[in-house]
Design a protein around this nucleic acid. Structure first.
Lengths: 127, 127
DNA sequence: CAGCATCCATAGGGATACTG
DNA sequence: CAGTATCCCTATGGATGCTG
């Protein structure tokens, strides 16, 4: 694929496209079932790994760690390690994380609001 | 599967749990990268299959059909077939679909708003 | 053109076991 | 308790070819 930069050499265009691809990457990270459920479960609480595991119904150990790492990497959750024995690790939403949470709330709200519509649609589709 | 209603005969509890599992199912359907990108791409336009394929960057034929069927089944998109030759199939967001779109817009807005934060977080995490 | 079916590779994701 | 690593299987998703 030939990029516009190769043709024109305009740095600002390159920056724009870099930002776009970054945005896409973040969108892909975040637009995923487990990530959103974790964010929703955290809310404005501070939870330990094991607590989170109980809160997010059906999540496996592996998926939880994996998504928590991803969220931490992107700065959506704060990971605080207490050097005690046994170890205690607590997770909290950061400011960007809490901002995203409001949109997750909106999706949840939407889901419940349209439950009826969707059930009807499914019956119609079944025919 | 044994339902609670069979055990206790409390219809209202059973209904609540059924609604919950339905909500979870819908959430899982919808909280997926391609579904959200398709909804965003549609916006308030009416697009043909092939147009949609061009709009949603990187989506494969298969994923597009698959997600469109799912969205149609849940009543988020309206699928209109014109019995011409060659065939012409157009997709439009329904009212519930448009309602969800506003929340997708919010996620996109969030993504761009926090691009900087996230980039910084990633650098810090890299260390 | 839209859609379905098929084949095939890979990544998603569960279970388990081991370390600090 | 939290995290990492391993095994292993299934589902996901891409590429291709066939039909109305």
């Amino acid at each position: 694929m030939v990029t516009k930069q190769q043709l024109k050499g305009l740095p600002e265009d390159a920056d724009l496209r870099r930002a776009d691809s970054l945005a896409r990457e973040i969108f892909s990270d975040v637009a995923n079932k487990w990530a959103l459920l974790i964010i929703e479960a955290l809310g404005d609480r501070t939870l330990r790994f094991s607590e989170l595991r109980n809160e997010v119904e059906g999540v496996s150990h592996k998926m939880l760690t994996q998504n928590l790492r991803m969220l931490e990497r992107n700065g959506l959750v704060d990971r605080r390690v207490h050097p005690t024995v046994p170890p205690r690790v607590e997770y909290t939403l950061t400011e960007p994380g809490r901002a995203l949470r409001t949109t997750v709330d909106a999706i949840c709200g939407w889901t419940h609001q349209y439950l009826g519509h969707i059930e009807d649609a499914r019956h119609r589709f079944g025919a």
